[in-house]
C-alpha cells in the first residue's frame, strides 16, 4: 500500500521547506500543554516516547517508579507550516522529569519557550522554570486561567515567579485558538526584542 495515500495528504511538508524552527511549550502537570499544542497544530498532535532503562542508579526521587527498571518520557508536539520554506514545531514536555537527554534534545536549537502557568499552583512551576533557565532558553509566561480562578495582578505573579522586568506575562485559554496564538506571538515579539 502506498504510504502517501494511507497517511492522507497533509502529513508531509511542502517540497520547498528549508527551515525548521522549534518553540517549547512547557509547564507542570495538567497545566494545558497538550491542549495548547492541539489548538494550534495543523496536524493531529503527535506523541513520541523515549523509553529509558535504568542502569542501576538510584531512582528513589522519581516518584512512582521506585523499583521499576524502565520508564517512559513523553513529548507531545504539533506543527505549523508558516510559509513555503519555514515550518514551526511546538514541543511540549512535562517539567517534573529530569531526564537530561530529553531536555538536551528538546532545547537544542529552540527559539524560546512558552511556560504555561496556573496561578493557583504557582509553586509547581518552579521546577520547569529552573530547567528552562538552566538551558538558557528565553521564555514568556502564559497564565492559563482555569474556570473560576480569581485573576492575579501581573506584578504579584512577577514577584512570586521571580521574573525579570522584561519577561512577558500573557493570559491565555489553551482551548481557544486566538488566545493561544496571541500568547505565542507575545513570545515571538519578546524574542525579537532580544535580538536588537
Amino acid at each position: 500500500m502506498d504510504s502517501r495515500r494511507a497517511l492522507g495528504d497533509n502529513v508531509h511538508l511542502p517540497e520547498k521547506v528549508q527551515i525548521a524552527a522549534k518553540i517549547l511549550v512547557v509547564g507542570h502537570f495538567a497545566v494545558g500543554k497538550t491542549t495548547f499544542i492541539g489548538t494550534l497544530s495543523e496536524i493531529p498532535p503527535l506523541r513520541t516516547e523515549e523509553t529509558m532503562t535504568q542502569a542501576g542508579a538510584d531512582v528513589d526521587d522519581l516518584k512512582g517508579i521506585r523499583g521499576k527498571t524502565t520508564t517512559t518520557v513523553a513529548m507531545d508536539f504539533g506543527r505549523l507550516t508558516l510559509n513555503e520554506r519555514l515550518v514551526l514545531y511546538l514541543f511540549g514536555t512535562p517539567g517534573q522529569q529530569r531526564f537530561v537527554q530529553v531536555w538536551e534534545d528538546m532545547t537544542r536549537g529552540a527559539l524560546g519557550a512558552l511556560i504555561l502557568v496556573d496561578p493557583q499552583r504557582l509553586r509547581e512551576s518552579f521546577a520547569v522554570m529552573d530547567l528552562v533557565e538552566k538551558y538558557g532558553i528565553p521564555y514568556a509566561i502564559a497564565v492559563n486561567r482555569f474556570d473560576g480562578t480569581p485573576s492575579r495582578a501581573d506584578e504579584e505573579l512577577r514577584e512570586a515567579l521571580d521574573l525579570l522586568p522584561e519577561t512577558p506575562i500573557v493570559t491565555c485559554d489553551a482551548r481557544d485558538e486566538r488566545s493561544s496564538a496571541n500568547a505565542l506571538m507575545a513570545l515571538v515579539r519578546y524574542l525579537q526584542s532580544r535580538t536588537r
Partner: peptide, 28 residues
C-alpha cells in the same frame, strides 16, 4: 536530510520575523 540551521548561524532576526508574520497571517 535537510539539517536545521544551528541557532548561531540562523539569521535569527529574519526567522523570528517570518514566524511572526506566519502566525499573524494564519491566526489574524
Amino acid at each position: 536530510t535537510r539539517t536545521p540551521v544551528p541557532p548561531a548561524q540562523l539569521a535569527d532576526i529574519q526567522v523570528l520575523q517570518e514566524v511572526l508574520d506566519g502566525l499573524q497571517a494564519r491566526f489574524g
